[in-house]
């Protein structure tokens, strides 16, 4: 359903009418509400991410960036505030629809890859399409195309335990793009990789961003990686304490 309209706008990247993908206003997240140990993790976040942006969110551990990521990724709901994801008012989406939002709008890339064990790279990439109900022939064709893009097509029959860390992450990125989501949400994608393979993965993100106009949100604590992105949002103690342009910003 959303695949077609996002596809249409991929090409039309103009600075003039930039489309909001993430529009957060006054996001507050509290845990243990009503209990003596009530905890406010996010204290009013305003965040806008536009289509085709490559944004990084940086912060120390405990700063609330994981919680923010969970809310962006529709895994969790804010206590207060409004969040529109690609035009969908998330506050109005019923719980049982959140899985569909994740399926169509979000492409997760995890630090620990999280490929499904004992399942081939190809099947892993097919998985989000499987849950979306894409017919077999179509999803296999698309999964192969995506694996070709991340240069993993020759390993598509391999299972995760037969792949190196970098290869796993490339499969994971292909999987994240399966349903052509509005954003790719990458949580410390190079955290478990050595610096050279981490470099390859970052190059892959840059390529997807540059060539396909993917909207990418990178969550990291590594300032050097953040510096490569277009915009760096620093979060501390549940609040955004600064936004600056990164080295990857286009003029």
């Amino acid at each position: 359903m959303t695949m077609s309209d996002t596809k249409m706008t991929v090409a039309g990247q103009s600075t003039a009418a930039r489309r909001l993908i993430i529009d957060m206003k006054g996001i507050v997240k509290r845990f243990y509400i009503g209990q003596p140990n009530e905890l406010e993790i996010l204290k009013g976040i305003d965040l806008q991410v536009y289509k085709g942006e490559f944004v990084s969110i940086v912060g120390a551990s405990g700063s609330g960036k994981s919680t923010l990521m969970n809310i962006i990724g529709a895994l969790d709901r804010p206590t207060l505030g409004s969040y529109q994801l690609d035009g969908v008012p998330m506050g109005e989406v019923p719980d049982d629809m959140l899985s569909e939002i994740r399926n169509f709008k979000i492409g997760f890339v995890f630090q620990t890859f999280n490929l499904i064990p004992r399942t081939s790279a190809l099947s892993n990439v097919e998985l989000p399409m499987l849950y979306a109900g894409v017919p077999r022939a179509q999803r296999t064709a698309r999964a192969k195309e995506l694996l070709r893009q991340v240069e993993m097509v020759d390993r598509m029959k391999h299972q995760p335990n037969e792949l190196s860390g970098g290869q796993k992450q490339r499969v994971a990125i292909a999987r994240a793009m399966a349903n052509d989501p509005a954003i790719i949400l990458a949580d410390e994608p190079t955290g478990a990789l050595d610096s050279s393979t981490g470099r390859l993965v970052m190059d892959l993100f840059h390529r997807l961003h540059r060539e396909q106009g993917k909207t990418i949100v990178l969550i990291t604590h590594n300032p050097e990686l953040a510096e490569e992105t277009e915009r760096i949002i620093t979060i501390s103690d549940g609040q955004i304490i600064g936004t600056k342009k990164g080295g990857g910003a286009r003029v």
């Binding site: 895994l75 049982d96 994740r102 997760f108 999280n114 499904i116 849950y131 999987r175």
Partner: peptide, 9 residues
């Protein structure tokens, strides 16, 4: 992971 990728309950 499956849930994050969009698997319904």
């Amino acid at each position: 992971t499956r849930k994050a990728l969009g698997a319904k309950n």
